[in-house]
Design a protein around this nucleic acid. Sequence first.
DNA 1: TTCGCCATGTAATAGGTTACATGATTGC
DNA 2: GCAATCATGTAACCTATTACATGGCGAA
Lengths: 183, 183
Amino acid sequence: MDGCVRTVTRGAVAEEIRLTPTSYIVLGLLDLAGEATPYELKRMVAAGIGNFWSLQHAQLYTETARLAGAGYLDEEQERSGRRRKLYRLTKRGQAALRGWVATPTDQFTELRDLALLKLFFGAEPKALAAEQLPVHEAKLAEYERLRSQGPADAAPTGPRLALESGIGHEREWVRFWRRLADG
Amino acid sequence: MDGCVRTVTRGAVAEEIRLTPTSYIVLGLLDLAGEATPYELKRMVAAGIGNFWSLQHAQLYTETARLAGAGYLDEEQERSGRRRKLYRLTKRGQAALRGWVATPTDQFTELRDLALLKLFFGAEPKALAAEQLPVHEAKLAEYERLRSQGPADAAPTGPRLALESGIGHEREWVRFWRRLADG
DNA sequence: TTCGCCATGTAATAGGTTACATGATTGC
DNA sequence: GCAATCATGTAACCTATTACATGGCGAA
């Protein structure tokens, strides 16, 4: 009834894989949680990082399996009931995550905003702004509420800094669409 | 030698497809150009829209073929030399583009920035900022140069507005990373 | 004239999205 | 005790990226 009987698969390296941002999200969250099922990961994503980098829940099942197959995760499966799979980092997984975090990147991220694409190709600015403005205002309000909940740290953490960045960009979006809405 | 002899394939609808942002970029650029080969589209992308929504060049070959197969484009192929393919919008393609442009979207775009992801998972802010700051400063300078080249229109066009938005977000990135670099 | 780079294109792979499917839980 | 909803998982499809491949042109 409690899933104590499990099948354990330890760090066998069946194949080489390429680690994607999705991979590092899984590794990073498992590092925070110690161990988790894909479903728990899904909830962790929703709780924080999903705000600026969301994932399909299906992705968490395939990605954990893929990482386990390549030796980055240990996998443990319940023999009863749901046969849930529980994952945790291997040494290899920890090393991969640490190395990635420790390596700064100069990668540039494009906006890739659908509304902007329409605007580019001649969409009516006011109509677009009327749709976009409330969305970004709501998102901004949500972020600011999140920020007010967190502790007023002297030393901001990673998630906190990411949130600050999100707020800055949302303010920019609001400014931009408001100008078009009013213009 | 000049490819006058061509094979023409007219708007046959072989299959239904789903139109993606990539599809609309192709449709939109063909609308601007009248007609173009995939390679010419590649150059058009590089000249403007690629700044905030870039494409792999291979994508332009597969996407044009896909759109032609679904009746959104006419395809004309040289019989000589390079056997280049020349595409133009069909009525159906024009209608699809117009409908898309005319429909505002409330879709929200995530940041999905790799550096921010690393920051979230504990990367050293100063080291990251040292990599990111020059990249964003350079991009901002490029955008501002682009803006200064364009005419000082009374009525800004779509591309111009998209550029303004890009400038706003780059300023935000510069502000953000500068603070971490100095902090 | 040949080396190297840009032009132009195709093929293979893989990551991500969508759709589907069943087990548990809660409320009525 | 039934319906509805949430939890949990798998399968299929398809777009996008990567890798590969050849042709033409300019420079040395």
